[in-house]
Design a protein around this nucleic acid. Structure first.
Lengths: 136, 136
DNA sequence: ATAATACCGACCTGAATGGTAGGTTGAAAT
DNA sequence: ATTTCAACCTACCATTCAGGTCGGTATTAT
């Protein structure tokens, strides 16, 4: 399994924000209720999205979250890379990984590299708008 | 990360068996030494390969393992599915998973399905012989 | 008999998942 | 000013999984 609940919940939140965008900020409590997800857990997932300007978060009464782009401008891959970390198929390809000493002669690495590329290319070809429209 | 050491080690073993096939059975101890992998751990990984006739294992002195097909007849995907379980990107798609009650209306499922297909198609297009030949 | 080998089950450690609990900060409504 | 609602933050916790290790048993050639 690659994609944990963190990434899946983040996608659900993004879709909810996209579908209920009236210009107002939307409280996470509303989204949690609508989507049937644990509020406290969502609160732990969302900071990375606000820090990366994926969504805009406003505190205080009447606050909440709002998209910063149009739904068709959010590739699914971008959301997943932020919430899940790299979508690397093997640890060797992860960003922070200490380089494997067999890297130079490794004969499986090209395969993992290509797989990594294929996965990212596909996930970046789908947008939040596509998910909503059922355009898969 | 999708692929753990189980699957990666299994591939290394298969490549080693393919490259050192003289018709004789090859002791796992030899492979562990050559590849620098923990023998005891390999012994825990291999039974699933023998049970599925991927390799043939013979006990006793002079025993060991031997491929049952030619290297070009082993798709990487087959080895990985046996050692890693499904290569499903989300738990919802795993074989033994209890069906999600939102499955019918889930709008991300088609994307996961397609991704799953893409991953399997690629990994099944590469064979052990390709890995050895650097044919990626 | 002995040595070498696959095979098998129990155990162990550390990290990650999937949360929960409780509080702090900030802004708007009263 | 006070209250209320919201994001934000830190610590904790239970369960599962990764990546092994350990010790032994069954089987076969010499």
């Amino acid at each position: 399994m690659i994609i944990s609940t963190r990434g899946r919940y983040a996608l659900r939140v993004m879709m909810d924000l996209a579908e209920n965008s009236s210009g107002d900020y939307i409280a996470m409590k509303k989204i949690a209720e609508r989507q049937g997800l644990p509020l406290k857990y969502l609160e732990r997932i969302l900071p990375v999205l606000t820090q990366n300007r994926i969504v805009e978060g406003i505190q205080g009464k009447g606050g909440g979250y709002r998209l910063t782009r149009r739904p068709e401008e959010y590739p699914v891959g971008e959301i997943l890379r932020l919430t899940e970390g790299d979508l690397a198929p093997v640890t060797c390809l992860e960003c922070g990984a200490e380089p494997c000493e067999k890297r130079a002669e490794c004969r499986t690495l090209p395969m993992w590299n290509k797989l990594h590329g294929i996965i990212n290319a596909y996930l970046d070809s789908v947008t939040i708008a596509d998910l909503i429209a059922g355009n898969i």
